[in-house]
Design a binder for these strands. Sequence first.
DNA 1: AACTCCAACAACCGCTTCGCT
DNA 2: TAGCGAAGCGGTTGTTGGAGT
Length: 323
Amino acid sequence: MGRAPCCDKNNVKRGPWSPEEDAKLKSYIEQNGTGGNWIALPPKIGLNRCGKSCRLRWLNYLRPNIKHGGFSEEEDRIICSLYISIGSRWSIIAAQLPGRTDNDIKNYWNTRLKKKLFGKQRQKQGSRKGKEINSNMVISNNNNNNQFPCWPEIPILQPIPYSNDEPRFNDHSSIKKLLIKLGGKFSDEDQTINEATNPQYPMDNSLLMQSIYQNSPINLISSAPIDNVLANAQYNMDRAASSFTAELEHMILNNQQKLDGLEILYDQDMLIDISASTSGGNLDWEAMNPFVLPLPPIVDKGFQQGVIIQKSAFDELRYPMAQ
DNA sequence: AACTCCAACAACCGCTTCGCT
DNA sequence: TAGCGAAGCGGTTGTTGGAGT
């Protein structure tokens, strides 16, 4: 038995908002706040909309100080860097960019930034395709193009064709397997924190896993509560440009014996001629992102460049009008 | 001018998390 | 402490408008 829907979808208006609806919602919230209950809001205002829809409209479009479009180079840089560090956690990324919404950033990333970056890579990479992991898995980091000074060249991974008995790069167990092979560490504690940090890749916490991980030389997964995540993000931001591929390359080259049985994850078929994916195809480096970044030390340096964020400031940034 | 393609963005969907009872 | 409902969040889809042919 499924969960009851939050509203009767047949009896609420859907689709684009009209200026009248916007005005109603905006003026009501400005005067009365949300009342802490979005679902109760539409009837109060006389809007035939789902509460969820009202909430989204307010957060993404109507609330004050929202900026749309026109992302600056600095914003690009921050988005890239944070994406490298923490993945697609748009709400956290948005918290670093006052006036930007998670939806906006997500859209910007998916429609422009990603293509811009990978498009650039295509230009550099051309139709190169080969068999040596150390010449193809990692793309040169020597980049004189300053368009995205923060962005390391990304290894492009092809969606892995799979059968039922083959590992898949996109499934959690395969990722986990690769991590283990590379020496990742996930104690129960690590796992708990990691899940908070990157719930997209939850790890199971079997004792076997634990025993494997505990003696591992490196801890590959960023594991820290949010403040540390952000601090780590800055750490990675600082070093990403120079170290991302170098470290991945180092990791791969120095752990090849550990990768036995995982050839599917890194052999030549894994590499694609990016010309095959010009319009937002599967760019599965994302799946790899969480573990190609080494765990930085818990840094105490704080953020630079005016993007210092305290956890307590999150809500102020995101919900400046909240009661 | 008509059509097609595609980029950009708004909105929806469904899962997870959180807080209250 | 379990159960429930609302909010939060990220992925996905739908819509629209502009560029290209």
